[in-house]
Design a binder for these strands. Sequence first.
DNA 1: TTGTAGGCGTTATCAC
DNA 2: GTGATAACGCCTACAA
Lengths: 346, 346
Amino acid sequence: MKARVGIADVAREAGVSIGTVSNVYNRPEIVAVETRIRVLSAIERLGYVRSENARVLRGQPSRLIAVPVHDLTDPFCMALVQGAEEAAREAGLAVLVCKSAQNTEEEARYLDLLKEQGVRGVLITPKDDSQSFTEALQGAGIPFVLMDHDARPSRPRGCSVTIDDVAGGRMAVQHLLDGGHRNVGFVSGPHHLLQDAQRRAGALEALARAGYPATSLREPVCPGMTATAGRQVGKRLLSDPNRPTALFCTNDLLALGVLQELREAGLRVPDDMALVGCDDIDYASSASVPLTSLQRPGRAMGATAVRLLEAETMLDDGEHDHGQVVLSPELVVRSSSRRETSTAQS
Amino acid sequence: MKARVGIADVAREAGVSIGTVSNVYNRPEIVAVETRIRVLSAIERLGYVRSENARVLRGQPSRLIAVPVHDLTDPFCMALVQGAEEAAREAGLAVLVCKSAQNTEEEARYLDLLKEQGVRGVLITPKDDSQSFTEALQGAGIPFVLMDHDARPSRPRGCSVTIDDVAGGRMAVQHLLDGGHRNVGFVSGPHHLLQDAQRRAGALEALARAGYPATSLREPVCPGMTATAGRQVGKRLLSDPNRPTALFCTNDLLALGVLQELREAGLRVPDDMALVGCDDIDYASSASVPLTSLQRPGRAMGATAVRLLEAETMLDDGEHDHGQVVLSPELVVRSSSRRETSTAQS
DNA sequence: TTGTAGGCGTTATCAC
DNA sequence: GTGATAACGCCTACAA
């Protein structure tokens, strides 16, 4: 078995020069049809493929994009990666995936890797407001797109795609109000995450629109973001004489825990208590009562991010306005919040 | 801002020649200590990083490994990727991830991509016995490692890592027998998957060891691999006068469906029915009764695969024996199969 | 111990 | 419309 078949082999096989073979790829229009088909058939026959390494070395844009995520087993992160991969494939790009750096040293090492590989750009999901990584990327001249980072600096240094969590909270509570509920509860974990705060703001907006004061939003204390925590919330609600008739939990496990506890106590869902969760985890649709859930469009976010990166890197150095895309979450309505239990499906 | 800083800049800055800078990287031992630190400090000062493209072009082994998986949102696939990424990072490699090809054309296109990028190797999870892709890889001279493919050809063409599903079935049923159960059921989907068949074989082995005939294994028919299907199984079992006291379901959703149905009918789990699922999905531990589940070591599989690939590509062309690693699944025991409900803990 | 030069596979710029 | 040739950045003999 011979070594790698190169452009020279193709040229020889087709009886043309190296430059002509290159032209067949890069400027097909300037090469004679007859020559072109001869070259193409030689390529086919020899199974020649271009060397990306040589192309990039020569100055062609790289086709590698890097996607560091916090947790490779987290469904939301993987939705991002999935969306990115689909869009990347469509654009002829390949996705380099990894767990994102945990500290400055890892960050530096990873940055070196990116520079060594000569990636075309990076899709990042910042976990906090530290801008060390984006600054480093900028310093290295590597374009990037921010994903799911609400607390953007006032002067964005790159494109970004985010999710409108305020709208999400509004949609969830609006849906419950539409179902005739007047006593609505909001359950979130103890860590006051920005996204929870935004959903809460959205919930209050929905109430305000319906003419209810902010104080009408019931907020049971909740010790965590797990099913166990949800059960505790449920237990406490059971003995609450004035308990809400509908609950928006900012986490599906939380909602499922509440669901378990209430059903075991003999309450009916959604009749005695309507439930809306958040994140639409896999199991939500398989629960004993399929759970309505606020779905964050991770896949669309990944895909959009790739397109933004593409747009940014296509323009030849021409400073273009960094795109700031905001996606809306979607409420997936299932039995846990449907009034008419007769049409229960999904 | 200047263009990319190259090896020549470093050489100039350090007052040495290009070759010496290269030697600092590739044969540090032959360069004088004093020169070396001077070069290193120049590298540091200028923020120089080597061009992987140029290195590979020059003949260095690539640091890219490709991991095509069936579904980027499937937890098991992602466990593979996670394990691979961790091991790869440790080895200084980067992971190229994508959805695996669905047809021959996609396969060919993907193969071209791999060749163009000059990947060092591929980790593949075949979905059927078609060997077209492995043969193509072999033809292209790209090393690969098979993951989770039980039906290997007699003469393997590469390393492989698999999971011992027979042992898994045996462990699950043995666990139930140890719990004092004598009437054990086995529930799997309608598609007779190889892995299900192997788990069944393991289940029969466990029974045989305990002195029970193969006919003692109860096998309720099951219409699918979903929670809904599980509920149907549960419903049918409720009216079975001679129903098993323990069930091994080859899928967690199935087991959770059974669990829901039985509990709603007032049966207690595990007292009236012990349950063991399979795959240990995220939600298994959060179910109303935390579910015992057979966990397949995807992460270890990915990591092992990378190490095998490394071993294979380190050896300079010297034909080495392809490693065939078999990993054991692990039974994660939770309340749904524990006799003593007093010590119940996740 | 250090410097010099050739070549890896492309692409782009010229002549022809 | 086509062919020769000089980079791109690095590694490695080989020469000094």
